[in-house]
């Protein structure tokens, strides 16, 4: 479903070349649950940005559902993001002036889905995510866990092929963090591909497949219980 072949991302910082991703090859199958871990500055967020089509590699090939997305224009990338990828961020990134329901509907609004359909789909998710009592509340009236649930509902409302989560529990207490992980795992159990970038080894170890990134390269790629080194 996702295939990275020899993908590199090089930044120029103060005249110096920094290889945030150095010829990474990675294949993620449909419905997989994968965690990406590694120290700060190892390149895991860059990898997530490349996977989420927010950034484009300097070299290598990225095939998403068999389509080479490295050659797509900005607008084509935006359209692909809209249809195939859902994002969850550490700081939720909800729009403060919109209610929970309006925030959830945002991807549908941008995709030009009619109002009635937007409302029907968001209401279903609100109920499924236990947010019915909070649907008309603004983000500043919600707890951290509720905000992240709104963000997850927003990420999946377009029924994407893959859900990318960048430190989804990084800004939550332990209890809320556990709830959020369970919610994401529930979505994965229904067939949604889940990729989680995390610092937290406890959360990282819950994934069936764990990828460790060090210095822009995959240092380890293992299945839960059976570790093996990167190719």
């Amino acid at each position: 479903m996702i295939e990275l072949r020899e993908v590199s991302r090089i930044f120029n910082v103060g005249g110096q070349e920094v290889r945030a991703m150095d010829r990474i090859s990675l294949t993620i199958e449909l419905g997989e649950y994968l965690s990406i871990m590694g120290p700060s500055g190892s390149g895991k967020s860059t990898l997530l940005n490349i996977l989420g089509l927010l950034d484009t590699p300097n070299s290598g090939t990225y095939l998403l559902e068999g389509i080479n997305v490295t050659s797509l224009s900005d607008n084509q990338l935006a359209a692909t993001r809209s249809r195939k990828i859902g994002f969850i961020f550490q700081f939720f990134h909800l729009i403060p002036r919109l209610t929970a329901q309006q925030n959830i509907e945002l991807p549908l609004l941008l995709a030009g889905v009619p109002s009635k359909e937007r409302q029907a789909r968001s209401t279903r998710l609100i109920e499924a995510f236990g947010l019915a009592a909070r649907s008309n509340h603004r983000p500043d009236e919600l707890s951290g866990g509720q905000r992240q649930r709104v963000a997850i509902a927003r990420a999946v409302i377009n029924e994407p092929a893959v859900l990318l989560a960048d430190e989804p529990t990084g800004n939550l207490d332990r209890h809320s963090g556990a709830e959020i992980v369970e919610l994401m795992e529930g979505l994965n159990s229904k067939g949604l591909t889940l990729v989680v970038v995390t610092h937290d080894p406890e959360i990282g170890r819950r994934a069936r497949r764990q990828v460790r990134v060090v210095d822009g390269q995959i240092a380890a790629d293992s299945l839960r219980g059976a570790s093996h080194a990167a190719p």
């Binding site: 935006a78 993001r81 809209s82 990134h93 945002l106 991807p107 941008l110 927003r154």
Partner: peptide, 16 residues
């Protein structure tokens, strides 16, 4: 800026 970035991440085109 963050709101605009979010809309772009959620699939808004430059024209939008």
């Amino acid at each position: 800026t963050a709101e605009i970035g979010l809309c772009k991440a959620l699939g808004a085109s430059q024209l939008q």
